[in-house]
Amino acid sequence: MNSSIIELKDIYKSWMIGDEEEFVALKGVNLSIKQGEFSAITGPSGSGKSTLMHVIGLLDKPTSGEVVIDNKNILSLDDDETSTLRSEFVGFVFQQFNLLNKLTVQENILLPTTYARKKFAYNPLERAEYLMDRFGILSKRSSYPNKISGGQQQRVAIARSLIMNPRLILADEPTGNLDTKTGDEIMKLFQELNETEKITIVLVTHEPDIAKKTRRSIHVLDGMVTTT
């Protein structure tokens, strides 16, 4: 059996709405993501699935609970250590792409490496070129993100998420801003990455069609994981 790369134990996340009302987005979530998995977090909007993804991706800290990576509760890490872990452990793909329009395609892909603390076992530029070539965007390497199509932008974002060779790729509605055909292509890319390179992928989606293409479905309803 594959080992867990990240484990969530009894995660609560809440915040205040105004002065009085407390909104509880996650109510005691227990979840384990295993090496090489391709899973989808599904659920209606407002169910807490995005919040769950942010906690898994170390983008947001839960109110209580434990997030365990390599047998270590990473919630006790300070911000610098969390940043470093985030850069090495996880790569993100967002619905809005979230590329920096003032950087070229190549610079966007290389951006995570400028913040890296570790020594690279590979040449980041060569890896960027390999990824661009593989995703069919090598000819756009000097273009700016706002000058290329949405599908191409999402490929840039996926390349960026892979540049640090992370253990986990998190994708938040990666096809949400794309037409069906382009969305299918992006999904195919994810499937391929998972099958051929054994990259662990978790994606968040509210589309059952997309979720069907993954191998595990984590259903979130009302801040709780109902089926895994």
């Binding site: 979230n98 590329l99 640090m164």
Partner: peptide, 8 residues
């Protein structure tokens, strides 16, 4: 965005 990709 910069923080999400690892900036301290």
């Amino acid at each position: 965005i910069r923080r999400a990709v690892g900036a301290r």
